[in-house]
Every structure is written in structure tokens, then in C-alpha cells.
């Protein structure tokens, strides 16, 4: 379709405005983390690394960063294993209830975080009777992180030449050898992309986390929420927010470069939780 010159200009301006609206506030947070003015007056009075220094010195922040990284890493690991197994099962085998299961797998990413959170909280505390901890957060995160891995892997499997596994079996390789030498190498970049997305999802998740985290534990987003309204902590909150932005955006960017096809649903979720 050809666009007239004026249409191009108008569309360009609208696009620019929308992006400004989305990214200017983020930029402001980054700038303010270096702003010498404690009340964030505009324009910034001067450049300082004081807030960054304070953030690094704060045991609360350090603990929260470590917790978030740990939760994200473990839930990503669980998601990689379960997501891959699910994708293989749903694509390679026909069995009763296959369609229902493939819907049930995707559903957690569409469910509102607050519903998932309340449901899991109920499950852990009243039904199972386990006390909330970092592990319950990991399990809760894995329920939706799995979906990004699953989506990436199943998209790759669909495009993968089904004959490759047959050829491998034909040449004498058993099921596990075939997976190790043929299937896994084909999935590698899809797993990396899905895993990075899962990591990013878990790292900045707050709603489900609020309902499943143990008393006294903090992840980075929880720390921000707790310190947001303490005036003397405001500059440090900005620093933590910048860390959160960077740790979330880099994996998404990498994942998008690695797999052009299936990051869609993961990316929507990220926007939904951030918004």
C-alpha cells in the first residue's frame, strides 16, 4: 500500500508521540537516579552517584536483588524443563484431552495476576498447609513463565523438519540420543529466547509475588513498593527502578533477536504487568 506524503507525516508524528509517552517517563526515572536534587526538581541541579552508592550499600536492596535473581533463575529453570516436555508431548503425540491441555497450559498467562495470586495463596496456605516462602514464589512464577518457554519451543518444533528425528532413529539412535544430538540442537535458540523471557517475567513480577511471598522476604519489586512512599528512600527507589528496567529489557531484547516468531505472547504479558 502506498501512503501519501501527508499521511506518512501524520502517522509518523502519532507514532513518535506514543513512544514519547511510553518512554519519556522511563527516561525520567533514569535521569533522576543521577539527579543531585533530592526533590527531583527540573531541570536537574547536577550529576551525582550518591544514590547509586547508597543503593549498593543498603543491605535491604542487596538482599532484594539477590532474591529476585534467585527466584527468576530457579523459576526459569523449572519452566525450561516443564515447557519443553509439554511442547514435545503436545506436538509429537496424540492422546485423549490433548486440546484441553494445550489450552490449560496457555491460560495462566492470560489470567489476571491478582486471580492467580489469590488462588495460589489459598492453595498454599489453606489446602496444602505450607508456609509461604521464596519457594512458593518460585512455583507461582513457574506457572506462567512456563508458557513463554512452551510457546517458543512449540513454534520451533512446528517448523522443525519432522523427518529429522525419524532419520536419527533410522540411523540407529535411541530416543534419548536423538533428543540430545538432533532435537535439542534444533531447539537451543528457542530455549534461550523462551528462557530469557521467562527470566524477565519473573524478575519484575509483583502481583502474584505479593500473595505468595513469605513474611520478611523481599524481591526487588516488593522492596520498591514498600519504600515508595518513604520520602527519604525516594532517590534509592529510582536507582532500583533503573536496575529493574535494565535487567528486564536486556533479556527481552535478546529474546526478540533470537526468535523472530513466538515472543508475541510473552511480550504482551510483560507490558501488561508493567502498565
Amino acid at each position: 500500500m502506498r501512503l501519501s506524503r501527508s499521511a506518512k507525516v501524520v502517522l509518523g508524528v502519532i507514532t513518535a508521540l506514543v513512544f514519547l509517552f511510553i518512554y519519556l517517563p522511563l527516561l525520567l526515572v533514569v535521569v533522576n537516579s543521577f539527579n543531585a536534587d533530592r526533590t527531583f526538581g527540573w531541570p536537574p541541579k547536577g550529576f551525582t552517584l550518591e544514590w547509586w552508592g547508597r543503593a549498593f550499600d543498603s543491605p535491604g536492596v542487596r538482599e532484594a536483588v539477590v532474591s529476585s535473581l534467585w527466584v527468576a533463575a530457579v523459576s526459569t529453570l523449572i519452566s525450561l524443563v516443564l515447557g519443553t516436555l509439554l511442547a514435545l508431548a503436545l506436538l509429537r503425540y496424540k492422546f485423549f484431552g490433548r486440546d484441553v491441555i494445550s489450552l490449560l497450559v496457555i491460560l495462566p498467562i492470560a489470567l489476571p495476576g491478582i486471580v492467580t495470586g489469590i488462588a495460589l495463596n489459598n492453595m498454599f496456605t489453606t489446602i496444602l498447609g505450607v508456609s509461604l516462602s521464596m519457594w512458593t514464589v518460585v512455583i507461582a512464577h513457574a506457572t506462567f513463565c512456563m508458557v513463554t518457554v512452551f510457546n517458543n519451543v512449540i513454534a520451533r518444533l512446528r517448523r522443525m523438519h519432522g523427518g529429522l528425528e525419524e532419520a536419527s532413529a533410522d540411523l540407529g539412535a535411541g530416543v534419548f540420543t536423538t533428543f540430545r544430538l538432533v532435537t535439542f540442537p534444533q531447539l537451543r535458540s528457542a530455549l534461550l529466547a523462551g528462557g530469557l523471557l521467562a527470566f524477565a517475567l519473573s524478575f519484575d513480577e509483583i502481583i502474584v509475588t505479593t500473595f505468595t511471598i513469605g513474611a520478611g522476604d523481599t524481591t526487588l519489586p516488593i522492596w520498591i513498593l514498600q519504600n515508595l512512599f518513604r520520602p527519604n528512600q525516594a532517590p534509592v527507589v529510582n536507582v532500583v527502578a533503573v536496575v529493574l528496567i535494565v535487567v528486564s529489557i536486556v533479556p527481552i531484547w535478546l529474546a526478540q533477536r533470537l526468535s523472530q516468531d513466538s515472543v508475541g505472547i510473552g511480550a504482551t504479558r510483560v507490558k501488561a504487568t508493567e502498565g
Partner: peptide, 30 residues
């Protein structure tokens, strides 16, 4: 993989992530 016969597939089904020599050596490798 338990049958002592091999197949040449219609679309060849060569392993795209392996060099030719690794493709051909696959049966010996396993």
C-alpha cells in the same frame, strides 16, 4: 533403531546443524 536397514528420505532429512561429515558419520557415532 533396532532394524538393520536404512532409509533415504524423500526430502533427504539431513541434519541442518551438522557438517556433511558429521551427517554421514552420525550412524557410526550412535
Amino acid at each position: 533403531f533396532e532394524r538393520d536397514l536404512n532409509t533415504v528420505f524423500q526430502d533427504y532429512a539431513l541434519f541442518p546443524h551438522m557438517s556433511l561429515i558429521d551427517n554421514v558419520a552420525y550412524g557410526l557415532r550412535v
